[in-house]
Amino acid sequence: MSEALVAVEAAGADITAPAASGARQFWRRLRAQRAALVAAAVVALLVLVALAAPLLTALEGQDPTTYHPGLVDSARGGVPIGSLGGISAEHWLGVEPQTGRDLFARLVEGARVSLGVAFAATLIQVLIGVTIGVAAAMGSRWLDQVLSRVTDIIVALPLMIMALALLAVVPASFPRPVLVALVIGLIAWGNVAKIVRAQTLTLKGLDHVAAARLSGWGAVRVARRELLPGLAAPVITYAALLVPTNISAEAALSFLGVGVKPPTPSWGQMITAADVWYQAAPQYLLFPAGALFTTVLALTVLGDGVRTALDPRAASRLRVGTGRARKEDAA
């Protein structure tokens, strides 16, 4: 959940560690972790559901926005008719109280929104962070001063508060999911820039980078050919842990009613709406909350696994739910 922990852990990591050698070794190390494998399978399934959301709702024969007033009992305040919140062959997970909208359709469309926003925001964070970080490390002293100061300011801005406030002032006509991704991406790139700058400074001192610069290559070419491969490991590690953070952020903003707005479904928004219905229709709360929990958990475990695979030394330090203690530790 908290980006702060990821940042503190990254700051403590030994960035002079050699980058993991090759994709094959990465896969071998990732495969060796059972928890990470299970998490990867869950994430793959979620991504698949998100991508195929329109297909799945079509298969069910429903859509996320149609009201079904006949399926809720208006005499009892709009409680779904039938057992378990109106679960039936037509409505696989029942219907929403009051509106009667199909819950399964809203849940899978919600997955699409949730993952889409989180991945897009992560992409923005990585793009800005890498650009600023590399520029600061490779540029003049003056440029470094300016960019580092800007980064410090960005890090000082609390994501939730800033996003909450920013989302309020942008006109409602702007497509909300895009806006949420943009806002999260534009506010929370500071730690990526910090990590990239530190790593680039280390790489700069290495012989092959110095040789490339001395041979008269342009800055962009040096950055692309000699620096980016060395930056891949820390950036991928950090990005993998940013995705679940961004999922939580989107859900929280939608929960507060400023993120993704109806009729577009979102898990956070569903949880807010379900608040008052928990006795009459508990599944309305359980499904989105469970989906959110599973997604963040799977992405976090996968992120830990990616870190372990890319930096085995960090793995022996951190080992979060992915393995046993080393023999020499167990006194």
């Binding site: 959940m1 859900a251 929280a252 949880i271 959110l292 929990f293 963040v296 979060v320 739910g321």
Partner: peptide, 18 residues
Amino acid sequence: TVLTLAGWATPVFVLGLV
């Protein structure tokens, strides 16, 4: 470790609501 991970993955508003 499992409990910690569960706490880490639960949004505060879900835990509070539950």
